[in-house]
Nucleic acid binder design. Structure first.
Lengths: 204, 204
DNA sequence: AATTTATTTAATCATATGATTAAATAAATT
DNA sequence: AATTTATTTAATCATATGATTAAATAAATT
């Protein structure tokens, strides 16, 4: 994955990735990308035809890299619910720490244009039919888990992991905790989130 | 608060509120606001001088209406931690249900321009000096609460309440649960979040 | 009623922005 | 080497966009 992998075309794509992830589709100007890639603006259209086509490539790759992990993880029949929670927290706290723009980028892009992306994501992951949800429902039947909507459990898990990355600037503003210190503290959550999720399962 | 309260100026402001909350500053075109308010574009600049000045009014009012609740709530010396959590969940689930754009609007606006708004919010609420955090630290001293960073507790509470509203389109996409059904389910969280927060306090 | 001030409109500007074109250059193929 | 194909550049377009201006109209004040 070296920067010279494919010359100009690759350089434009990586510049687009950077700028789109930072600003989103609308706020990104093709000239921003051209400048970031250090190329003439016309090259962008030569290689990718249009801003939208270039964006779609980035969006598809980002969705892919984000969801590929969770799909195999949540459909693994060899791990327990508890283990899945821990794997999920560890994997995504690492992923989102590495690129802090991924979470807001994906959420805001889907939010701006739900119809376009709901279909695309729907194919990737039918949460309802996942082995994870199957395990959860079995837990309820056995009496290990209180009979709450599994949606709450999913939302809580995703929220505990992802929300701090989305709200970081706002939380820094209201708590006056600087960004780097905040991000360090988030690492503790790899250990804490599985324990919290476990403890929540005693609530009915 | 009738729509005719102040004539044209008020009409423009309410149109601006609607469009800005939906799309944010950059993606909003002054012509969108003019059309929504059913006025000539020049009137917007006549009454408010510029797009930015109009935006700042809306942003300030929205910050105000969002944070005024939490400030008095978290500094109330007559309520327990537990009660504060319940009041917070009830108040904000109602507020965010009424206008589903508030949460993403505020978070994304601060995110786009942290420096501009950190100061503005910092004045409003010094979380660290709140009675809430004082109560929390006392709980740790007494041994009622495990010695974790209160930041986690705040992030978890805010996240459990706010995250579903931000991620709704994305969660609808991956769980194929329609928006209205999702929002209904969120009402259950007024009851559940205080119980979850309570149960998390047994984790160390 | 005459004058002043506030409101509204239509026309127009200057710049931003995504995209295209024609020409030049470089690389690959015959 | 000649020809074809791929890449790059500079110039230019068409439309979008925030803002201003001058003139017209309405409302308030004297």
């Amino acid at each position: 994955m070296s920067k010279k992998e494919k010359g100009t075309e690759y350089k434009i794509k990586e510049a687009a990735r950077k700028v789109f992830l930072e600003k989103g589709f609308t706020a990104t100007k093709t000239r921003d990308i051209a400048e970031e890639a250090d190329i003439n603006l016309a090259l962008l259209n030569y290689y990718f035809r249009s801003k939208k086509k270039l964006f779609d490539i980035i969006m598809t790759e980002t969705l892919q890299s984000f969801f590929s992990g969770v799909i195999s993880m949540f459909n693994d029949e060899r791990t327990t619910l508890k283990e899945k929670v821990s794997l999920f927290a560890n994997h995504y706290i690492d992923l989102l720490s590495e690129n802090q723009n991924i979470a807001p980028f994906l959420i805001n892009t889907v939010r701006e244009n739900p119809d376009e992306y709901i279909a695309k994501i729907g194919i990737l992951d039918k949460a309802k039919e996942s082995f994870f949800v199957k395990q959860f429902m079995e837990g309820i039947t056995k009496g290990d888990i209180p009979p709450i909507n599994p949606l709450h459990f999913m939302v809580n898990l995703i929220g505990l992991v992802v929300f701090p990355f989305i709200a970081q600037p706002m939380i820094s503003a209201i708590s006056s905790i600087p960004e780097d210190q905040f991000l360090n503290t988030l690492q503790e959550r790899k250990r804490l989130i599985p324990l919290w999720m476990e403890s929540m399962l005693s609530v009915k």
